[in-house]
Design a protein around this nucleic acid. Structure first.
Lengths: 153, 153
DNA sequence: TAAGATTGACGGTTCAATCTTA
DNA sequence: TAAGATTGAACCGTCAATCTTA
């Protein structure tokens, strides 16, 4: 057998800290959004992607690709958001198999209310702690790993 | 109303890249563990924490604190792992309210098989992409955010 | 009454199967 | 047959309620 190549001390330290930070940050952002705006991070992402299309309207499959979500996950999620009045589904006129997702007025109001609060939280927890140099390094780091993930997909 | 302070361009770039990297990395690590070792990341974490106690035995509440998990999450998860034969629960002799969680031989075998493969994947996806300087910066970054999270808990 | 732990209900996520139209 | 999308079953995570013993 080949001996596993374990992480060295710096690597272990970095990895453990990253995992802890990540778990806590995600939990906190979720909690804040839920309490202040009654949205989950998933809801938030869907709404943001819909406002990117300035008619607030997108094909389900395109939305799934943009979000990098499985289409069934998106479909289930849209059903719940539809039930809550945040989005609506309308048939596609040119291709009867397809469906459009549209932001409702309530959905638009929800994201417009939530976004500034959410940004404030991200700033307070993350960017206020970092120098401009560290911000660029954060990008460089994430970028390298992301490239590797995509190259080995 | 006060105008929201949006993120500047570098910050947005860093944040979006981090979010994408995080989502894809987590998904990939989960998939790899599941395929190669039939374990989820959550299973893996529980098993690792149990092997830390060298008798492979821990109180449920202590385990929950170490993992930073809600106790009900852990309880549910332990039930599922018990059903699969990875752990067992035994009563605590000195405090009849408490329960110990013990690693079964199968659980020990599972983590010993999974760990080297998992480390290899982490190394290939993350640390092989980073210089020693970037590894230290990763720690510094995560550390600052983590401190902030804990200070504002 | 509080501590240690489990339970049940409910929303979230994945996988495979399905339905409809191209 | 394949593309666009939904569905149902099974597992995961959270919250509030519960059970048992200290």
């Amino acid at each position: 057998m080949t001996r596993p190549r374990w992480l060295n001390e710096s690597e272990q330290r970095a990895w453990r800290t990253y995992l802890a930070m990540n778990a806590q940050l995600t939990a906190r952002l979720n909690r804040q959004l839920q309490e202040e705006s009654q949205l989950s991070l998933a809801d938030y992402d869907v709404l943001v992607h819909l406002t990117d299309h300035d008619d607030g309207c997108a094909r389900v499959l395109k939305l799934a690709r943009d979000l990098q979500w499985e289409k069934s996950r998106l479909s289930h999620h849209l059903s719940r958001m539809e039930r809550r009045g945040l989005i609506a589904r309308v048939g596609c006129p040119t291709d009867a198999r397809g469906a459009f997702v549209v932001l409702t007025p309530a959905g638009r109001a929800a994201i417009e209310d939530a976004a500034p609060r959410h940004v404030d939280t991200v700033r307070a927890l993350v960017f206020d702690q970092l120098t401009p140099e560290l911000v660029d390094l954060m990008h460089a780091l994430a970028s390298r790993v992301l490239t590797r993930l995509q190259d080995t997909a």
